[in-house]
């Protein structure tokens, strides 16, 4: 596309052409600006209402008076534990599935097509349905009770489609030449996979993981019936623990006068997301992998 011929419009079509170009450029910039404005509005609104409440003791203290005073220490801890369970189950599972879909199965085979179809349907299932499933299966049938483990496992079911789809694309976007070169050197398929393909796909894999962390952190409906509502510091993964999003929901909807604290907690949640985003980018940079996923290369 780099060698586009530039045809200079010199005749009567010039003015209409320029107007069209200008309109197109304007609408594109408007759309982009609007997206940024929405994000900026949300961030500014949350920070104005919430930042003044945040200090160190808010971040580490126990919840008191139903959240209207005290801090959110136990809630941050529960959130991190839920996220930890979610990722430690879903990341290996989804990368393994993505490898199976790209390396083992013919991408047009019946099984691969069924797996993809299932994932697409799973991606469209509303989170409250995952919550009800998690409550029925993990909480009651498996007897895990309201616990961080139930919540984390429910969330990992929920993020699987995103993770697998992004991991699949990441692996597929590794240029075919890499594989050819590895094959020419006589590397076995598994060595090629672990030494060549996965490292090359790492930035895109990380992007998928960050995306699913975002979805998991934002989740309320799937957690209220699985990881539960208890705002005490969890002692093990079998304890119930309230996540930040559930806490925000409870403060905003259930607790009279909880609004201001809900904004403060929302600030913390957004900050956590930004920190995770930035850390991932930094880690990848230090690992020498760059932060832009491979462009093109897709079939």
């Amino acid at each position: 596309m780099s060698s586009t011929q530039s045809v200079k419009p010199t005749r009567s079509g010039q003015s209409t052409h320029t107007i069209r170009e200008l309109t197109a450029a304007f609408s594109i910039w408007l759309a982009a600006g609007l997206v940024m404005a929405i994000l900026a509005w949300i961030l500014i609104d949350i920070s104005i209402r919430g930042l003044s409440q945040i200090n160190l003791s808010f971040l580490i203290d126990d919840v008191t008076d139903a959240g209207r005073s005290g801090g959110i220490g136990p809630i941050i801890l529960s959130t991190i534990l839920i996220l930890f369970v979610t990722l430690s189950v879903s990341v290996p599972l989804s990368i393994a599935t993505a490898i199976a879909l790209t390396e083992q199965l013919n991408s047009e085979s019946l099984l691969a097509r069924y797996v993809r179809r299932c994932l697409d349907i799973l991606a469209g299932v509303p989170s409250i349905v995952f919550g009800l499933f998690g409550n029925a299966f993990f909480t009651i049938t498996l007897g895990l009770g309201y616990s961080i483990l139930s919540g984390g496992l429910t969330l990992s079911c929920m993020v699987l489609p995103i993770l697998i789809r992004t991991a699949e694309q990441a692996i597929n976007s590794v240029p075919l030449e890499h594989r050819h070169a590895a094959a020419a050197l006589g590397m076995s398929r598994s060595t090629t996979l672990f030494r060549v393909i996965l490292p090359a796909a790492a930035p895109a894999l990380a992007a998928g993981i960050v995306l699913s962390i975002g979805r998991a952190l934002a989740e309320t409906a799937a957690l209220i019936f699985t990881s539960g509502y208890v705002a005490r510091t969890p002692e093990s993964l079998f304890d119930s623990g309230r996540s930040l999003s559930v806490h925000i929901y409870d403060l905003a909807m259930n607790v009279p006068n909880g609004g201001a604290r809900a904004y403060a907690a929302a600030c913390v949640l957004v900050a956590m997301l930004l920190v995770i985003n930035e850390t991932t980018a930094l880690l990848l940079k230090f690992a020498g992998l760059g932060s832009t996923p491979h462009a093109g290369g897709c079939r």
Binding site: V89, A96, A100, G143, L149
Partner: peptide, 22 residues
């Protein structure tokens, strides 16, 4: 090679089964 992953997940689930939290 996916088997270690599966074993890990199964073990997670099974430890849950044998525990009666409430």
């Amino acid at each position: 090679f996916p088997h270690p992953f599966l074993a890990f997940i199964l073990s997670l689930l099974l430890t849950g089964c044998f525990r009666n939290p409430s």
